[in-house]
Each structure stands twice: as C-alpha cells, then as structure tokens.
C-alpha cells in the first residue's frame, strides 16, 4: 500500500501530510512532484495545503494545469481515494473534480484556529469508520475557505449526500456562530457523487497526535487505509 502526497510549487502542508501517514500511521507515503504524469502504483492520493503558485491568481487556478492533475483525474475516475485538504480542496474545485468555488472568508482575514466538525456521512473512504454525527476537533488555517455554489448545485450535493463535514459548535449544533468563514450551509467538506474524492478546508493531517491538541484527524487517514486494505483483497 502506497499513498502519494503531491508537491506543487508552493505546497507547504506536504511535509505534515507525509509525517502523519508515514510516521504516525506507519503507512508508506511518497512525495510526487507536480510534473509527474502518472500515479501508477499508488493506492491513495493526498493533495496537501499550501499556496500553490502563491495564490496570486484564484487559488488552485494554476495548479490544476500541472501534469499530475491529469493523473489525479484518471485515478479518481477509476475509483481511487483522493483527499484534497485546504489548498488541495481549492485545486479539486478548480479542476472540476468537485463542484462549487471558494471565496474569501467573511471576516476578510486569514483564520487559524481549532473548529468542531460534524460528520454528515460515512459513505466516503475517509469517513467509513467515522459514524454519521461524530464530532471532530480539527484546525482550520485559510484565507479563502468560504464555500460557495449556486442554489442548484447546493440542492444537488445536499440531495446526493455529498456534504461530508459541517462546522458546528461543541454540542454538534450547526450555528452561524460556529461557522468560521461564512460557507453556505456551514459546509466544511464535500465529496464527488461516487464518494471517492473528498475536499475539505480543515486540516486532519495537523491533528493526528494528541500533543497537537487533538488526534481526531487520524481517524480520516485510518479510514482511508482500511478502505484501501479492504479493496485490495
């Protein structure tokens, strides 16, 4: 089993994702440079956070043109698990692998803080061992994490059960106060129709060890690894 951690110019959470998978979960992780055209031999893909190309254009708008994104599309089409975190989520949106777009946080400021998420579905490879309704403490760190889509798209993804995480308060209630960035429907993460591609603004790779303030992020990676193991059988 081998997990690809993509590296674009300006990726900066690549080391953290690698550390979480390789050292905390003791699975095989490898960095894959964005100019690679193939993901053959990999069983899962992480698109880490960062500021690819400095985010000087729209976030993710240039990264989607990298050769590796063609390989990501083929990997996703064949049902392989793909998770895009923060800037990785933004890249998945720009690539059209997930619907919607990101706009600047309602506060117009970068936000780095712990938030609470409510798990809305266990249907993805990343949440299969996290029962619906489970609350997770996970940090956010972004400037453009305000999820936006037209009404039609929102109706569709809600109807299809594509909303995977919502921001909530400590008691699990989805409230405007618990929404850090103004995202429609307090959406923190969504998946594609098939469920194998997940994009989320919060950073599970930052909280896989208790000394980091929470180990809840570990559960997403454990889910992914157990999914891969099961499908390999």
């Amino acid at each position: 089993m081998k997990i690809a951690v993509l590296v674009f110019p300006g990726s900066n959470c690549d080391h953290d994702a690698y550390h979480a998978i390789k050292h905390v979960l003791a699975a095989d992780a490898q960095f894959v440079w964005h100019k690679e055209g193939s993901l053959d031999g990999f069983d899962g893909v992480v698109i880490p956070g960062g500021f690819t190309y400095g985010d000087y254009l729209r976030t993710g708008a240039l990264a989607k043109l990298s050769p590796v994104m063609g390989a990501v599309r083929r990997f996703a089409d064949s049902g392989g698990p793909v998770i895009g975190i923060c800037n990785g989520f933004q890249i998945l949106l720009e690539s059209g692998l997930l619907p919607g777009a990101m706009i600047v946080n309602e506060s117009l400021k970068f936000i780095c803080d712990y938030v609470t998420l409510r798990t809305e579905t266990a249907r993805t490879p990343f949440t299969r061992s996290i029962p619906e309704g489970t609350r997770l403490r996970i940090p956010v760190a972004h400037y453009q994490g305000n999820y936006f889509a037209d009404d039609e798209t929102i109706r569709r993804i809600e109807g299809n059960g594509q909303v995977v995480f919502r921001y909530c308060d400590a008691g699990g209630n989805v409230t405007p106060e618990a929404n850090p960035n103004g995202s429609i429907g307090s959406i923190a993460g969504i998946c594609n129709e098939k469920g194998n591609v997940l994009g989320m603004m919060p950073h599970p790779e930052r909280c896989t060890e208790p000394e980091m303030g929470s180990a809840d992020g570990r559960r997403l990676f454990e889910s992914m690894l157990s999914h891969i193991k099961e499908n390999a059988r």
Binding site: N12, C13, H15, D16, H19, A20, K109, F110, I111, C112, D113, P139, A141, H203, E205, R206, E209, E211, M212, G213
Partner: peptide, 16 residues
C-alpha cells in the same frame, strides 16, 4: 492578532 497567523503548520507547535 495571532488568529491571523498560521501558528500550527509543520505540526511542531506544542504550546501555541
């Protein structure tokens, strides 16, 4: 102030 700084990246921050 510090909420605008990414103070956790690189996952080494034991005391924020």
């Amino acid at each position: 102030v510090y909420r605008q700084y990414d103070y956790m990246i690189r996952t080494n921050t034991l005391v924020a």
